[in-house]
């Protein structure tokens, strides 16, 4: 394979400096990056291995009630942290529905946020892809695009963001903490990933050298713990990306939804926060009519980008089901088949 430099900085500052060079990229667990390198999709000149940086693997409870998750916390460790799963059950369920046990054991929080689309044309260096190579074209348009985006896509790119983890995170107003050349800053997760527009190659709001050091969940996120679910429809029970997924979280008081959070996965180039649907739900009784109305609102702007019109109807149904499940209450334990429509069935008793 292509030769590359490998550096292992001792401090975050050194890492940022090393990664700010052209051709450099961060390496954490490499569960996505190494595949991309083997396939010739990514050909970095320098890997900046951040896995040895100190202090990025902690789950911290902050004074203001927020929860701070270090960027190097492993997906499996986070999902299996009992206090975390109790406070943020939909996030734990989403984590456990992703990838395979082996990958979850390795993959990091920061890496999960920055994983690349699984669009087959992005993955295939001989296909044209504006995301991989600006201005080259998009072979997914008019190609095999049954699973591509139905929201927020452009003529230049119809890829989706594949993360499960990001979907409930974005619903719960997660904040991304970033260390960069000009110091530390933070960004709502909802603003991290960019819609493709005219420049699909700009996938995130990160600048060269920027390192995600933590994800923070505000104290208010745990107010939804009693009514929070993640639901994922996929083509097999494990080790498959979402065709469509949804995270639904409700704060129910006196029989009314005081506040609703809803996000969709597998539908757009970013985890898709459905604020219009949330507005519909606010103040409504947690009943099917409200859920249907919310589903309509969530998909108002949806349109097929290819052979994927079914995903719009599927997304509506998933929204209704996820809201129904959330309203019914978070189960005491994460189901054996996390996020599966079959999770509650006697099948797995």
């Amino acid at each position: 394979m292509k030769p590359f430099d490998y550096v292992r900085p001792a401090t975050i500052a050194e890492a940022v400096t090393a990664a700010a060079q052209p051709g450099a990229t961060y390496l954490a667990a490499g569960t996505n990056l190494l595949d991309l390198m083997k396939g010739g999709v990514s050909r970095p000149d320098r890997l900046v291995d951040v896995t040895h940086l100190q202090g990025l693997d902690k789950i911290e409870h902050l004074a203001d009630g927020a929860l701070r998750i270090g960027a190097l916390v492993r997906n499996a460790d986070l999902a299996h942290d009992a206090a975390f799963a109790k406070a943020h059950p939909a996030i734990a369920e989403a984590l456990l529905s992703g990838a395979s046990a082996q990958l979850r054991n390795a993959a990091t929080v920061g890496g999960n946020l920055l994983q690349r689309t699984r669009c087959a044309y992005f993955y295939d260096p001989t296909s044209r892809c504006n995301r991989r190579e600006a201005g080259s074209g998009c072979d997914a348009r008019g190609g095999e695009n049954r699973l591509h985006a139905v929201l927020g896509w452009s003529e230049n790119c119809i890829a989706t963001h594949p993360s499960d983890f990001c979907v409930p995170l974005v619903a719960l107003d997660a904040i991304v903490e970033i260390e960069g050349k000009s110091g530390r800053r933070e960004l709502p997760l909802d603003e991290l990933h960019r819609l493709p527009g005219a420049a699909p190659q700009r996938e995130t709001a990160l600048e060269p050298g920027d390192l995600i050091v933590a994800v923070r969940l505000p104290a208010t996120a745990r107010d939804f713990a009693g009514h929070a679910r993640y639901l994922k429809v996929r083509e097999r029970t494990s080790y498959a990306f979402a065709v469509v997924s949804a995270a639904a979280a409700l704060r129910i008081e006196n029989g009314k939804i005081r506040e609703a959070r809803l996000a969709l996965g597998g539908v757009a180039a970013k985890p898709w926060r459905a604020r219009a649907a949330e507005a519909v739900l606010k103040g409504a009784a947690p009943e099917p009519s409200a859920f249907s109305e919310a589903a309509q609102a969530a998909l108002t702007d949806a349109k097929p980008s290819g052979d994927n019109a079914f995903k719009i109807e599927l997304a509506r149904r998933i929204v209704v089901r996820a809201l129904t499940l959330a309203a019914a209450g978070t189960p005491a334990r994460i189901p054996a088949l996390p996020a599966s429509p079959f999770a509650s069935g006697a099948l797995h008793a």
């Binding site: 699984r118 087959a120 044309y121 295939d124 001989t126 296909s127 008019g142 190609g143 095999e144 083509e235 097999r236 029970t237 494990s238 080790y239 498959a240 088949l337």
Partner: peptide, 20 residues
């Protein structure tokens, strides 16, 4: 259009996993 197989790996060429 091209005759290329677009899911030529075990991540995307789906066979049942144990859970199936």
């Amino acid at each position: 259009r091209t005759g290329r197989i677009m899911n030529a790996d075990l991540g995307e060429y789906h066979i049942p996993v144990n859970a199936d």
